[in-house]
């Protein structure tokens, strides 16, 4: 007796790659890389839009500068810097391993990147708020 079985097509979910449940640190780094990427792209275009105030004229720009020095804006700057550092340092790690450099040490590099991110972000935060205070 033979039984014909029709396999169900693969139910791929487009956002399945975002699912970190049961996953390890490499996957977390990958998802963090993408989330920071999306955030930084949005910021890049927001930044370009804000720069249009320069074209409007001195009063428009200087008005924005005054607003941007409020503590809420400065806190957002720190978040931006964390995103840049995390994305940049992890990107450096991925480039190095993609070139065959330090491949067995990729996790060590990840932790070093994370520590550097936090340390440099802390220094930046101190610099930003010290300049204001």
């Amino acid at each position: 007796m033979s039984v014909e079985v029709e396999p169900k097509p693969v139910g791929r979910k487009p956002l399945q790659w975002f699912d970190v449940r049961g996953r390890r640190v490499g996957m977390w780094a990958y998802v963090a890389m993408r989330l920071s990427a999306i955030g930084l792209v949005l910021y890049l275009f927001l930044h370009l839009v804000i720069l249009s105030q320069l074209a409007v004229g001195p009063s428009a720009w200087d008005g924005f500068v005054a607003l941007a020095k409020s503590p809420a804006f400065l806190a957002l700057d720190v978040i931006l810097i964390v995103g840049i550092l995390a994305h940049g340092l992890n990107g450096l790690r991925l480039t190095l391993v993609g070139l065959g450099i330090g491949v067995p040490r990729h996790k060590t590099m990840l932790w070093i990147g994370l520590v550097l991110t936090l340390a440099l972000a802390l220094l930046s935060a101190l610099a930003i708020f010290a300049a204001e205070g």
Binding site: R23, R24, G26, M27, A29, Y30, M33, L94, V97, G98, H106
Partner: peptide, 9 residues
């Protein structure tokens, strides 16, 4: 490949 290393894990 986006280097998530899950295959090796």
């Amino acid at each position: 490949c986006h280097s998530a290393w899950e295959c090796t894990e």
